[in-house]
C-alpha cells in the first residue's frame, strides 16, 4: 500500500486505523507507510470513507486555521482526499495480503481468510471425526502480526512432537517439508496479520499436544489465540470440555456447529451419496 504525497493533507486519520501500526506522520507532516511493518491487509484503503477534496486547497485551509489555533479535522473514519494507492503485489510479498486481507480468497484453500472451514462445515465434511480433536493455533492474533520465521519455530516444534498438520490449511501449503515443519525459505521474512496452524489429534493425546503449544506460547514474541474443537456424541455432549477445564482453561465463548448441513452436490449424489 502507498499513500500519495500529492494527495495526503496530513490529517492523520489513517494512523490509528492501520491494523499493525504501520502508518505514521513523517517529517514533512504527511502520512507514510512503513512497508516492512505493513501486512497489506488493505484496511486503510477499504475501510476509510473517502471525501474528494482538492488537496492543495485543503492544505491551505488547514494552514490558515492552524494560525488561529483551529483545526480542520474530518470525521475519524474519513480520508479527505482519497490518498491511498494499492500496490500491484508480486511474490513473495503477495503472501502478506493473502493472509491478512479477509476479502481475498486464499488460492490454496479456496476459502476466505487465514484457515480452512474447520468445524464450521464438519457436519458435511467430517474432517474431524468422533474421537479426534482439532487444535487451531493462530499466530499474531489479535492485532499484533507475525513473521513466518517465527511461525516456523512453532511448526518445527509441533512436527518434532509428531503432530499431523491439516492438509488443506494455508500455512501447511507454505511448508517445504511437513514432516519437519519447515516453511519455504522465500516467505520466512514476510509478515502477516495472523496465520492459523491446524492439527488434528486423538482425544487422548490432546493434553500432550496442548502442552507442546503451551511451551511454544511461553517462548513466543507474538500473541497466539488457541481454539479446540471436537465432535459431539448422540446426545450433543462433547468430551473435551471437561478435559480442558481440568487443565485450567476457562470455558465460555464457543462456536457450535448445529449439524443442519448435508452433502447435496450432484457429484456426490451421482457417486452414491455422501461418505
Amino acid at each position: 500500500m502507498n499513500i500519495s504525497k500529492e494527495k495526503c493533507v496530513g490529517c492523520a486519520n489513517c494512523v490509528p486505523v492501520c491494523s499493525v501500526g504501520a502508518i505514521y506522520i513523517g517529517d514533512d507532516g504527511l502520512a507514510e507507510i512503513n512497508t516492512e511493518t505493513c501486512v497489506e491487509c488493505h484496511n486503510c484503503f477499504r475501510g476509510l470513507s473517502f471525501e474528494h477534496l482538492q488537496p492543495g486547497l485543503t492544505r491551505t485551509i488547514r494552514r490558515v486555521l492552524k494560525k488561529f489555533g483551529l483545526r480542520f479535522q474530518p470525521d475519524p473514519d474519513v480520508c479527505p482526499t482519497e490518498a491511498f494507492i494499492p500496490d500491484e503485489l508480486s511474490w513473495p510479498r503477495i503472501v502478506r495480503r493473502a493472509f491478512s486481507d479477509p476479502m481475498v480468497t486464499h488460492e490454496s484453500t479456496g476459502v476466505h481468510g487465514r484457515g480452512t472451514e474447520e468445524v464450521k462445515t464438519n457436519d458435511v465434511s467430517h474432517r474431524i471425526k468422533k474421537g479426534d480433536v482439532g487444535i487451531v493455533v493462530e499466530f499474531g492474533r489479535p492485532g499484533i502480526g507475525v513473521y513466518f520465521r517465527e511461525v516456523q519455530k512453532a511448526t518445527m516444534a509441533m512436527a518434532a512432537a509428531r503432530v499431523t498438520f491439516e492438509e488443506g490449511n494455508p500455512v501447511a501449503q507454505m511448508m517445504a517439508d511437513r514432516k519437519t515443519g519447515t516453511i519455504r525459505e522465500d516467505v520466512l521474512d514476510e509478515k502477516v496479520l495472523s496465520c492459523i496452524v491446524e492439527v488434528t489429534v486423538p482425544l487422548d493425546d490432546t493434553v500432550r499436544v496442548l502442552g507442546v503449544v503451551k511451551e511454544i506460547c511461553r517462548r513466543a514474541e507474538t500473541v497466539i489465540s488457541i481454539g479446540v474443537s471436537t465432535v459431539c456424541d448422540e446426545a450433543g455432549n462433547d468430551p473435551i470440555r471437561e478435559i480442558l477445564e481440568r487443565q485450567g482453561y476457562q470455558i465460555g465463548w464457543a462456536k457450535v456447529n448445529l449439524g443442519l448441513g448435508r452433502a447435496s452436490n450432484a457429484s456426490i449424489n451421482a457417486a452414491g451419496g455422501p461418505r
Partner: peptide, 16 residues
C-alpha cells in the same frame, strides 16, 4: 437441535 460439533476458545497466549 442436537449440536454436531463445538469449538472452544482457550483465549490469548504468548507475549500478551
Amino acid at each position: 437441535i442436537t449440536p454436531h460439533a463445538v469449538e472452544y476458545t482457550l483465549g490469548f497466549h504468548g507475549n500478551t
